[in-house]
Design a protein around this nucleic acid. Sequence first.
DNA 1: CCATTCAATATTTTCGAAAGTTTCGAAAAT
DNA 2: ATTTTCGAAACTTTCGAAAATATTGAATGG
Lengths: 260, 260
Amino acid sequence: MPKTLPAVPFEGANENLSATTAPQDVSREDAATFDVLRKMREDILCCVLKPDQRLKFGELRQRYDTSVGTLREALSHLVSEGLARTEAGRGFQVAPISLADFLDLSELRVYLETKTLADAIRHGTDAWEAEIVSSYFLLSKLAAPRPDDPLSVKQEWGKRHKRYHDALVATCRSPWSLHYRSELFDQARRYHWLTMIHSRLHRRNEHLEIRDAVLARDSDLACSLLEQHIRTTVEQAVSDVPGLIRGNARALRPAGRRKS
Amino acid sequence: MPKTLPAVPFEGANENLSATTAPQDVSREDAATFDVLRKMREDILCCVLKPDQRLKFGELRQRYDTSVGTLREALSHLVSEGLARTEAGRGFQVAPISLADFLDLSELRVYLETKTLADAIRHGTDAWEAEIVSSYFLLSKLAAPRPDDPLSVKQEWGKRHKRYHDALVATCRSPWSLHYRSELFDQARRYHWLTMIHSRLHRRNEHLEIRDAVLARDSDLACSLLEQHIRTTVEQAVSDVPGLIRGNARALRPAGRRKS
DNA sequence: CCATTCAATATTTTCGAAAGTTTCGAAAAT
DNA sequence: ATTTTCGAAACTTTCGAAAATATTGAATGG
């Protein structure tokens, strides 16, 4: 019984973007603050800053070479995005991870990814196709990272992977859906990182299959493949790193932790 | 896991969600900063701070009686929530509103509200029912606000309205869905405010109907009613305040604005 | 008359230090 | 031996001023 609301009046596809209210996908914000924010986010996503790790200003100030105020602002952002938490007077810490959380966010991801992809296909343009081809090409040049690859290789793969998935949905007309999709994609990256570290499982080339279905404008197939893609990743993470995720990711926790 | 229902009284404690990763629904954060954040959010939601209005630190500092750093942190949060925007070196401003945005966010709301409601009904408890009854009662004591009601009356109604809708979905097991639902609900409040200001339309008691369907655990009916509830509000806003929303809400814009 | 330059003003951004909390551990008390 | 108390150390939070940047408006040249 899902009716659709009156279609969004489209005077200009471009104008649509500028008049949008959905949260800014922090792109070129306050130079300095943004820079710190971006670095910290990347560090959390790559588990350089580990789940539950306490984020002390002293250390952070040294690591990112900036002042407390700037750090506070960046941390504020991260809290809103769900990558950090804070408690009055007790500072900040990296958001925890858990199997339950991964399952929950993946479920919502399936909906948002397929919804945005379907809409993107509906409104796809030549430029959109070109960026998909291009970003897929860049992704395919890099083999899926192995556990013993250096951090920088993994990070580069992560970047290209994100760029490819962003490209797929780029022409979706719903800014809010896109925004939340992007946030959840980043969240999932933390868990994918675990898989990259520990897994040696071989997967068939799902990105290629998705690309072709999308370029063929076969919305149903593309969405189905994308859904599978997400679910397979979940299953792989759950079975590959059971000790880590199931056991509340103890191995990833910061070293010296005492529990009362 | 001790499961306390987030039966949030007016400003009461909120001890729930311990193992969850989804973003903190800023409940009792950094005392001072949080206080400012809450006030600013309320002011934006009630259009005391108008869409597109520039937020100068000088004025804000006076209005909220706090320092620049604290303001910056609060504004940071608001940007993440989509209630404000910022551009490097050019400060902050209240997020714009537009018909397209309202339609877009409402569409996503339909999905999230019904999804969370269905799950909440599935896992409903006695305490959940009690809070629904209680919050509905409080809401029903206040007639829907009229355009000429004082601000405080409208705000009180807004609070009770939110509390009621929060109560409906409180037992939903998906923290991420709940989080986004809550953010979009707040976003919608900005548009509802316009309706409250300008509309005199009479609507039948939808909140009562929803309450009864929910208490009867009739998930399909409840979701259907809730969907209607949202869509009706959209249609009402679109038809009632066409000049405002369609015309990019000119009347709500801050007074002295020059465009180059 | 319009466009451009440049200095004065207004505003934002960054920083370090003061003020306020919490945590930790040793000493005293049970 | 265990708990409680208390003070010092560690850390967080808040603030206002200095530095950096944008905006305004008047003066200049085409």
